[in-house]
Structures are given as structure tokens and as C-alpha cells.
Amino acid sequence: MGLLSKRDTKLITDPLADNNPITIQVLGICSALAITAELEASIVMSIAVLFVLGLGNVVISLMRNIIPSKIRIIVQLIVVATLVIIVDLVLKAFAYQLSKTLSVFVGLIITNCIIMGRFEAFALANGPWKSFLDGIGNSLGYAVILIIVGFFRELLGSGSLLGFPVLGDAIEKTGVYAYGYENNGFMLLAPMALITVGLIIWVQRNKSKALIED
């Protein structure tokens, strides 16, 4: 047996599909709608959440026996806010340009329900190593959906991927635009993100046997 037991592996793989935080638990929808107009923003947000959720889960798990149950939500909120502020301050002092790129995401991370959800549902009842894996698994599950949505929104909305125009130039009418193709500006707006997430849920519920309801 390697580093991960079977159960540990499940902690990582489960949230990727059958227990995905966005499509199945419907958590973290707000940020999934807000920042997926571009693939790059989706990726940056995914990495930021991976970091905060992995670390936050460990911290909460270590504190799980001393946190008073009456104020546990507040304590969780303080932990995640503190982590995010520390990271932000350190970046501002030593990697200023990077911090400018990330600063928009900071507020969004604190309010991300996946983070609070995993603290509450998992880290409070499990040890640090398991909590860490759970955090990584859930943020990867979050990342997968964000990147899929970001991919389609940027491709269909702006005709580019990671800022690189893949469909030709919309203004000069080259590439597919020469044949009368137009970018769909609606893809850039939040409603289309919700519809895209809806389509992913539809496909997933159709494909996965575990999720088919009577």
C-alpha cells in the first residue's frame, strides 16, 4: 500500500465526479459564475482555492477539539479570513505584481461556500491528513468545473483561449469570422455561466449511474 489508502484516494477522487462541490452539492456557484468569463481567471481562482482550502482544512482539523461548538462558524470564518489576509499581505510586500492579479480573488475566496462547507462537514470531524486530502479533492473538483466553464465561455464569447485568439480575428474578419461567424457576447454574462453549469449537471446526471434518481 502506498502513501494513500483506498479510502484516502476516494477523498480526492469523489469530489471530482460523483460528489462534485459545484454540480452535485451546488456550493461555490457564486464565484463559478462571476469569474469564468476567461480561462485564465478560472485557473488562478482554482489555484487560490486549492491553497486556502488545503491549508484551512488542516488548521480547522487541528483545532477541532478545542473549538466551542456554539461559535464554530465564526471561528471558521476567522481562520479562512486570516489565512487569506496573511497571504495577501506577504504577496503585497514581496510579489507586488502577483498580488495585484490576485487581489480581486481574495474577497471571493473568503465568501466561497465550498470552504466553509468543507470546514463544517469534514475538517471538524476528521484528522489533519484526511482533511488535507479532502480539501485538495474538493478544490480540484471545483477547479474542473471552473476550467470547463471558463473554456467554453472564453472560446464562444471572445473567440480566444488564455487570451490567445484561436478562431481568427473578429475585427479583421479572418479565420472562422471570414465565414460569417460571430462571437456570442451573451456567453460573457453571468446567466450563460449558470446555463453552462446546468448543462454540465445534465450531462453528468445522465452519464453517472450513481446519480440517476427514480
Binding site: 462571476a34 469569474i35 468569463a37 481567471a41 488562478v44 487581489s103 480581486v104 480573488f105
Partner: peptide
């Protein structure tokens, strides 16, 4: 520049 406009849109 901006402090917190929506990434991908106002940003």
C-alpha cells in the same frame, strides 16, 4: 487600474 472589478469583465 482597479481594486476589485470582476475578473474577465470589468477587470
Amino acid at each position: 487600474d482597479h481594486k476589485g472589478e470582476t475578473p474577465g469583465l470589468g477587470a
